[in-house]
Write a protein that binds this DNA or RNA. Structure first.
Length: 536
DNA sequence: TAGGAGGATCTGA
DNA sequence: TCAGATCCTCCTA
């Protein structure tokens, strides 16, 4: 599996030492598994071309300097400090540190950098503005990078994970290429013996950081400065030798060492990501002498909580959106109106071009039957993203995995700790439970909930702005400007001619107990606030 | 006086 | 069974 990437603020209980234990170095370029990225995927599509095994081993890196890189770039004195003392300053490409030089590739065509290429699984709640244009900074070129949390402001609807049960399905559909990106890597024919520098943890850190660097957009200057401050005396003893080819079990030892080292992770607050290795058919390569018969079990123990959290996050994300849209978590049950609602929401979330409604006048069951080609035919610009998002929803509503346990965030977070009290259960809003699809009560029906109706009014300020409006949309605070009119509209919708604001407000107040609405911090007349996630 | 708060009870799905 | 409707009393700005 690909990478279970948590939302910002989420720190999975695993580290790079675990990653190192489970990382199949044969995945590295030139390894057993071809590394050419799938052209249909933007996941890790920026990997450098596979290294050619020449006479000299290489440490290849794709770090991006402040100025646009060129193939003939002068590495400059700063970076050279990393390789050796001034007296041994090399002349590129011939380094006095035998056989090691840096390869700085030219920037690739921006075509491959689009975050909207086919099958990109983007967080549905990310702001489109955070995605880079092809001309934006290099550091923004990895919108799908698992480590690139900076571009992804935390959102309860963020979608960085998926059910492991559906992983195989995704792999088959090439949602996730079955390889692991390594933009910086040791050439498989490298014979660098870093044993001699293993005592220099800072250098190992440095190299490790450099390896992660372009993924996390860490300023190179920062790394260099850190290196200068912390390891200047030690670097004099740096000695890198070329040794004969080692057995495969000892190959990539430097990378192994770096991956086991988590100091860089702490220093730069880098969050590791999970490869869901237990479900991944990729076999782990492990030196024979340190094979731990219990490692699989231990890895599973470490990974399981991460998976559970990721799955729970996924449930929350979709559940929140269901609640916000008033639609069933099961796309198959969507009415044409629900389909349009979902499409509109998704296009808004991703800043996609507006869809032509009459091309999407179909039920949920028909929608999920569409192929990706059907999607792209209806929406050439955004069809792939819509299709991918729908796949997520379909996966989210899994009869076996999720359907029976679906619950809104407030309840699911409690469920994760296994501490749902009777009271809490009683207060749990049942209107967004998956097994009680809201479709039949959804927008357009007389069975709509009051809170949904109010959101409906709030969603059309052009029409109803005179009687109800948002005070603070983000916080879900709104004000009823014309209580009589709102009550009348509510009564009309519910076919209750005797409805008045007194009754309506009583119903609103009932929501306090249910955790759907609450009083505002500073109590104001006719001002109410939706609780999370109903404010979404 | 309008609106907020909340208890009690009824209604309909 | 549950959400919402209805009726009620009391309180506050």
């Amino acid at each position: 599996m690909p990478q279970i990437v948590p939302s910002a603020g989420f720190t999975p209980p695993c580290d790079y030492s675990n990653f190192a234990d489970n990382f199949d170095l044969s995945l590295l370029p030139g390894g057993d598994i071809p590394t050419t990225p799938s052209p249909s995927s933007t996941f890790y599509s920026n990997s450098p071309p596979p290294m050619q095994c020449g006479l000299k081993p290489k440490i290849s890196t794709t770090f991006y300097p402040n100025s646009p890189p060129t193939n003939d770039i002068d590495l400059g004195p700063d970076f050279q400090e990393l390789l050796g003392p001034e007296s041994t300053k090399p002349t590129y490409p011939t380094s006095p540190i035998s056989g090691i030089y840096l390869e700085v590739p030219s920037i690739k065509s921006t075509d491959s950098l689009s975050p909207y290429s086919s099958h990109s699984l983007l967080s549905p709640n990310e702001h489109y503005s955070t995605f880079p244009s092809p001309s934006s900074d290099y550091q923004s070129l990895y919108p799908n990078s698992p480590s690139d949390t900076s571009s992804y402001p935390h959102s309860p609807n963020s979608f960085y994970a998926q059910s492991p049960d559906n992983y195989q399905q995704y792999v088959k559909k090439e949602f996730f290429p079955p390889y692991v990106k390594e933009e910086n890597y040791l050439s498989p024919c490298s014979n660098v013996n870093y044993t001699d520098i293993s005592g220099n943890r800072e250098l190992a850190d440095l190299l490790g950081t450099a390896i992660i660097k372009q993924e996390n957009s860490i300023e190179f200057d920062t790394i260099l400065q850190s290196f200068r401050l912390n390891s200047e005396p030690a670097q004099k003893n740096i000695k890198i030798q070329i040794v004969p080819e080692k057995p495969k079990s000892e190959d990539h030892k430097l990378l192994r060492e770096v991956l086991r080292d988590t100091t860089f992770q702490k220093r730069y607050n880098i969050k590791p990501f999970d490869f869901n290795l237990m479900d991944n058919p990729i076999k782990m390569e492990e030196p024979d002498d340190i094979i731990d018969p219990c490692s699989d079990e231990l890895s599973r123990e470490k990974i399981d909580p991460v998976l559970n959290l990721a799955i729970e996050q996924m449930r929350k994300d979709v559940s929140n959106t269901c609640a916000a849209l008033g639609i069933s978590p099961d796309p198959a049950q969507w009415s044409p109106a629900n389909v349009l609602s979902w499409l509109q929401w998704t296009t808004n979330q991703f800043g996609l071009s507006t869809l032509i409604p009459n091309q999407w006048d179909l039920s949920g069951s028909n929608l999920i039957a569409l192929s990706e080609e059907d999607f792209t035919r209806r929406a050439p610009q955004s069809g792939s993203i819509l299709y991918a998002q729908l796949e997520i929803w379909k996966a989210a509503f899994s009869e076996d995995d999720l359907g029976a346990h679906w619950m809104p965030e407030s309840a699911s977070s409690n469920a994760s700790s296994g501490e749902i009290s009777d009271d809490e259960e009683e207060e749990m809003p049942t209107d967004v439970e998956p097994n009680k699809p809201t479709t039949s009560r959804g927008t357009g029906s007389s069975h709509i909930h009051l809170w949904q109706f109010l959101k409906e009014l709030l969603a059309s300020p052009q029409t109803h702005g005179s009687c109800i409006r948002w005070i603070d949309r983000n916080k879900g605070i709104f004000k009823i400007e014309d209580s009589v009119k709102v009550a009348r509209l509510w009564g009309k919708r519910k076919n209750r001619p005797a409805m008045n604001y007194d009754k309506l407000s009583r119903s609103i107040r009932q929501y306090y107990k249910k955790g759907i609405m609450k009083k505002t911090e500073r109590s104001q007349r006719l001002v109410y606030q939706f609780c999370h996630p109903y404010n979404l």
